[in-house]
Design a protein around this nucleic acid. Structure first.
Lengths: 327, 327
DNA sequence: CTGAAAGCGCTAACAG
DNA sequence: CTGTTAGCGCTTTCAG
């Protein structure tokens, strides 16, 4: 099999204990001995067995991330950042895809628990109580979800929604349709919360539709319902739904933005590629992913007294799907 | 800490060995004893420590996947399928993102090697010799890359390219520009190979441009060069580049498909959402991902005499960016 | 500063 | 069928 610590010890003419120390606590060993050990390790291409190390230290050097859908660029953006930050900190990362199933979420975290030092749970659909239970299985950091006592990295979706409404109101819109994402989704609740306050403040007429699947097909379905309600602007839960809306409206010969304005949420790369380009809100996915890992790493050697919740700012990106209403 | 096999043994009034057997080789233990053990395990919420098990069995129950870019939907499509199939087979999965860097690829595989039973290496940029070296570190399965002696799941890109050329020729195109992806990319070589044979067979005039970065920006850059060469059709290395080409042509007031036809490759979801919708080749990402895992699992308990290479068929998807040339 | 020895949680012979 | 025993590769007392 592979080269073990004993091979290195033999080659460096020291004991395995010294090799171990040279590798993990360099200050405990004489520089001369240490360099001899390091040389031997390098020559042999020795890589410590993390599992064995973890068995005794209780730390695995791994973290996990569970996301609702790996086909959603929003989550893969987070994943990419998590992966990068973790690698940088010399951690390896487990991924799991819950397929939007809360039960699977809990199961996956539990399955990972033994092999990781902690997990980043993205936009969980679990209820608070279940989330607390899950948090008991391993060190948990939430992403886009808040729960007292659990560290979290959240993006200011509510603020983004307020920016959208302010933008539409400034353009002259007074009747707006909102296409809800999944009711259980914390993100949808946040976005809706921002929407509600902004709508109330501006005396706007709101048509509250859905929930719809947060996918292209959901947008297709939602578009017709929205149009029937006669708003001058349609605010979708996210970009993918908005792209579905755009497609459906195009098929029906309804012009965007002349007949109706449309907004998305997330600023996926593709939001800028459709025609007209989509007005949307940019989510700081990379930043949030990085933050989540930092929170987790901090949490691992903290006294767990305070669970920080870091919020990353969103930003409205005005493009071609919003203009003043016709009449 | 957590509940161990000893706790279960104590509670079931048996030895740890019996617990172990009851869990891993049920047939070796009396049904009555077994159910007692299982009950105890369930009551205690016992979860075997895979790391400890792996230390002795030599199997970890984990697999790894390394991809060039987690922001590329093509790879996340593969990842999603790999994840799903692995979970189904009771394996956990490590991900790593090499950021298109061959050196990082090798490093990441080596880093994973100790913690996994094998890894799926997607579209590696490594040279054959380095790839062989990497294959020595762990059980390797390649995705979209062939190497003698190493199992691989490949998509028939060359066939897809041939389908594109045949399609364009049928429409009447006789001068075609190809926008190369990275020169080191096996995928680009495959696509180019398919293109070359089809072009030769059809007596088509080929303008070979690039290489370009396989991204939106690469397409932006490539578009102008392509137009300058005066082809009636532009064949991009992949969808993302094609979308960049589309955007650049639109900005320059060049009509697609009236002035020039454009094709992509991959059939990302967004290929159908742009306007006009992109003619492209659908890649069986999910199927290939699943196949890769199956190959890996088979490989793990095989005699390693034959390394199968499974090819999944691509499919041309004709949409709105291709029509007969003007003149 | 370094070595010997005791395990971490688990499985795999080897005896009963 | 079941228990005892010996480690897997590594870190960490505890003595030198």
């Amino acid at each position: 099999m592979a080269v073990t610590i004993r091979d290195v010890a033999r080659r460096a003419h020291v004991s395995v204990a010294t090799v171990s120390r040279a590798l993990t606590s360099p200050e405990l060993v004489r520089p001369e001995t240490r360099s001899r050990v390091l040389a031997a390790a390098a020559e042999l291409g020795y890589q410590p067995n993390r599992a064995a190390r973890g068995l005794i230290t209780g730390k695995t050097g791994n973290i996990g991330i569970v996301v609702p859908d790996l086909d959603n660029p929003f989550f893969t953006g987070v994943l990419k950042a998590v992966q990068a930050r973790a690698t940088q900190a010399d951690y390896a990362v487990f991924v799991a895809d819950s397929d939007e199933d809360p039960v699977a979420e809990a199961k996956l975290v539990h399955a990972m628990a033994k092999q990781v030092d902690g997990v980043v749970l993205c936009a969980p659909g679990l209820e608070d109580s279940q989330l607390h239970e899950v948090a008991g299985a391993t060190s948990l950091v939430l992403l886009n979800r808040r729960l007292p006592g659990v560290p979290a990295a959240v993006m200011d979706s509510a603020g983004g929604m307020r920016a959208i409404v302010d933008h539409l109101v400034a353009l002259g819109h007074r009747r707006i349709a909102y296409l809800n994402g999944p009711r259980t989704s914390w993100s949808n609740q946040e976005r809706r919360r921002g929407l509600m306050t902004a709508v109330a403040e501006n005396g706007v007429d709101l048509v509250d539709l859905g929930p719809f699947a947060p996918r292209y097909e959901g947008g297709l379905q939602a578009a017709d319902l929205a149009v029937a309600a006669g708003p001058t602007a349609i605010v979708a839960y996210n970009d993918i739904m908005a792209l579905g809306v755009l497609a459906r409206l195009r098929d029906r010969g309804i012009s965007v933005p002349l007949d109706v304005s449309v907004t998305g949420f997330d600023d996926l790369m593709y939001a800028s590629l459709c025609s007209p380009a989509l007005t949307t809100v940019a989510m700081p996915v990379a930043q949030a992913g990085r933050t989540a890992v930092n929170l987790l790493l901090d949490w691992l050697d903290s006294d767990h007294t305070e669970a920080p919740q870091v919020v990353a700012e969103t930003q409205l990106v005005v493009r071609g799907t919003t203009t003043p209403p016709r009449r």
